[in-house]
């Protein structure tokens, strides 16, 4: 297989990707990525509100990847099971946070149902749902039992974009696409 590096570069350039990563998602990696993104947003002179929103959404998206890495085995032999991908882009009116990871086919319907549930709610509905999960939901070592997605939807005021791409009879590739509109718009 030949790797066309310029093709990669060109696609990333056209999508204004500020940072991308493919591989093992570790706690240290997330610390570094968050630090890099903070200084990039400082350099871009984003206003305080935008910086906070993007940072918050990044934390939830990336920690979601971190916590659910082990849920699916690799699609191909020899691939590290904790491997995932994420990209952060800045368009003229919004930041885009895109994450991708394998998911067991049997877990798709449950996740899809939860995402659709969140997407069906308006601002008030999300607030109530958030409080309900916060107050009654099960807390696990993997996080807040679905609180992350509700929080992302609440803070961005946007629908959660997602897709499942079938890979084989065991796993699919789950992509999550989150948009954080800039404060000035």
């Amino acid at each position: 297989m030949s790797l066309d590096l310029f093709d990669f570069y060109d696609k990333m350039e056209r999508n204004n990707i500020l940072l991308s990563f493919k591989g093992d998602i570790t706690s240290d990696l997330l610390t570094s990525v968050l630090q890099i993104m903070e200084s990039k947003m400082d350099n871009l002179q984003e206003d305080n509100k935008t910086k906070k929103k993007v940072y918050n959404v990044l934390v939830e998206c990336l920690q979601n990847l971190y916590h659910h890495m082990d849920d699916a085995p690799p699609a191909a032999e020899g691939e590290p099971s904790r491997s995932a991908i994420f990209m952060i882009g800045r368009l003229s009116n919004a930041y885009n946070v895109i994450t991708g990871n394998y998911i067991l086919n049997e877990n798709i319907s449950g996740l899809k149902q939860r995402l659709d549930e969140v997407n069906a709610l308006d601002k008030e509905g999300l607030k109530e749902y958030y409080k309900q999960i916060l107050n009654n939901g099960e807390m696990s070592l993997k996080g807040g039992g679905g609180l992350g997605m509700v929080d992302i939807a609440r803070k961005t005021g946007q629908k959660l974009g997602y897709s499942f791409q079938p890979i084989n009879d065991k796993v699919s590739f789950f992509s999550l696409n989150i948009k954080v509109t800039l404060n000035s718009n």
């Binding site: 906070k52 916060l134 996080g143 807040g144 609180l147 992350g148 929080d151």
Partner: peptide, 8 residues
Amino acid sequence: YFNTSSSK
């Protein structure tokens, strides 16, 4: 800043 797992 605080994440959702801290919120619990």
